[in-house]
Simulated assay, not measured.
Amino acid sequence: MNLKAIHYATGEPVSICMEQGVIKSIEPVKSENRDTSELAIVAPGLVDLQINGYAGHDFNQVPYPDKMVGEVIRKLWQEGVTSCFPTVITNSDQAIQEALESIALACRQDPVADHGIAGIHLEGPFISPNDGARGAHNCDYVRPPNWELFNRWQEASGGRIRIITLSPEWPNSAQFISKCTENGVTVSIGHTSATPEQIAEAVEAGARMSTHLGNGAHLMMPRHPNYIWEQLAQDRLWSCVIADGFHLPDQVLKVVFKVKGAQAMLVSDAVSLSGLPAGTYTSHIGGSVVLTPEGKLHLADNENLLAGSAQMLLRGIEHVTNRNLAELADAWDMASVRTSRFMKLPTAAGLTPGAPADLVLFRREGSRIRLERTFKSGKQVFLREET
C-alpha cells in the first residue's frame, strides 16, 4: 500500500510504501505544479502508557464481559491509539489477579488484543496509604511491596506486566525496585508521600518514570523540599503528565516540558467513561459523577473534585499545541515515539523505513485534530466515514 501525505514533523509531502506490516520506504513528493492542500498529515500511531478503560469498558471491573479487551483495542483505533498498556489499579489481591488473567487470556485468544497491548501497567497497590497522595485508590487494599505477591500476579499476566507504579516510602522499597528492574519491569513513582531521600534511593535502585506527575498528590505540601520537585530534579526520571486541560494548569505543563525535554511524555489515564456522551454517570470509584460537554469528569456534588480523566491522547496533543506549550511534532512525539522509545518498543523508530507500519492520518481543523485513518501493522483498521 502506498500513501501520500504531509509528514507531521517536516511539513513536506511524502510517499510512504507499506509492505508486510512495515514501512518499506518514505520518499519526498515533488510538489512543483502539484496541489498538496488536500493531503492529510501522517504521523506515528499513538502509544498510551496508562489507560484504565474506554467507551464504557473498564479494565478494573471483574469479571470482564466476553471479548471486552479486544473491543477496547478496536475502539482505540478511532482515537489513533495503536498500542497501549491497560492499567490495573489498587484492588483486592484476587481482583487484581483476575483482571491480569483476563487480559492474558484475551491476548492468547484474540490477535487484535495481542498486537494492540504492548504490556500491562500495574498502578498499585504498593502506593501511599495517605489521603491525597493515594488519590481515588481504595485505602483498604493499599499495602507495602511484596515480591512474592507480585510474582504471582506476573505469572497470572503471562509475564505481561511491564510497568508498575509504586511509592518508595515503604521500608525495603529499594530492594523491591531492584528486583523489578532486574526482571525487565519498569518502575514508576506515583501516588507517593516519599521524602526526597526515598525518591533518590528509588532512582538509584532503578526507578525510571513518574506516573501522572502533579496528580495523585496532596492538595498542600511543603514549599520545598517535596516529592514533586525531587522527581523533576532527578535526571534519570521520565515524566508522564495528563494534559487534558483539567488535571494540570498550563504553568505546570510548561515547567515539566522545559525541565524534562525529551523525557516528557503524555498519557491519557482515561477511565471507562471516556468516549461516552456528556451526562451524569455512576462510577464504581467516585459514585455519582458528571462528564461535562467540555470533557471534564468531576464528582456530582463537587465540581472542583475530578473523578478521573475522560479525554484521550488526541485531546492532550490539542491542548498543548493550542496553548502554545509545544509544537505539533513535539507534542505528537510525546504521545508516540517517546513513549515507544522509553518502553523499548519497535515503534520507537517512528516514520522510518523498517519500522512497524503503525500510522495515522489526520487533519487540523481550527483547534481540533480530526483523525481520518488508522493503520496497524500496515493494515487499515479505521476509516472515518463522512456524514
Rank of each mutant, 00 (worst) to 15 (best):
S283P: 01
G378W: 14
Q234F: 03
H121D: 13
W332S: 00
F257G: 07
T36D: 14
E182S: 14
I89Q: 08
A43H: 10
T36P: 07
N302D: 15
N52T: 07
V29H: 11
T90Q: 03
L3Q: 04
E365H: 05
R108P: 07
C84T: 04
L361Q: 14
A55E: 11
G275Y: 11
L371I: 09
A307N: 03
Q198R: 11
D110H: 11
N52Q: 11
I163M: 09
V337D: 00
I285M: 05
I177K: 08
R208M: 12
I177P: 10
A335K: 01
W332F: 02
C139E: 05
A262F: 04
R74H: 14
G56Q: 14
G308T: 07
H247Q: 08
V255S: 09
S31C: 09
T186L: 04
L297M: 05
I117Q: 10
I26N: 05
R152T: 07
L237R: 06
A40M: 12
T374E: 11
T165E: 08
A335H: 01
V112M: 13
F176G: 07
A133C: 12
E197F: 05
L219W: 15
S210L: 03
I103Y: 05
E19A: 09
A278L: 06
P353K: 08
V203F: 10
V290D: 00
F85R: 07
V255C: 10
R152K: 05
T282C: 01
G116Q: 10
V81W: 07
S274R: 01
T387Y: 11
W229P: 01
E182H: 12
D93W: 05
S178V: 09
R34P: 01
W238E: 00
A55G: 10
E294K: 07
D235G: 02
D235E: 14
L219N: 15
L328T: 00
V259T: 12
N183M: 08
P145R: 05
Q263I: 03
A329T: 01
S340K: 02
P125S: 12
G116L: 10
F362H: 11
A136Y: 03
L149H: 05
I164E: 09
E197S: 13
K75F: 09
T339R: 02
V72I: 15
L253P: 04
I16C: 08
Q154R: 10
M265R: 03
M68S: 08
H137S: 00
V72L: 11
I199Y: 06
R373C: 08
E294N: 03
L253C: 03
E386R: 13
K296T: 00
L314G: 01
L273I: 05
F126M: 10
A156Y: 01
H247E: 09
V88M: 10
V252Q: 06
E79G: 12
Q109T: 09
M1G: 12
G184W: 04
T195E: 11
R363V: 02
Q78I: 10
A300N: 06
A335T: 03
L297Q: 03
Q380R: 15
V14N: 06
L76R: 06
L313E: 02
G184K: 06
I228L: 15
A5H: 12
G158P: 08
V185A: 01
C180V: 03
T352D: 04
G216P: 11
E204A: 15
F342D: 05
N60H: 06
T192I: 04
L39E: 10
D58V: 08
R74I: 13
E365A: 08
N60E: 04
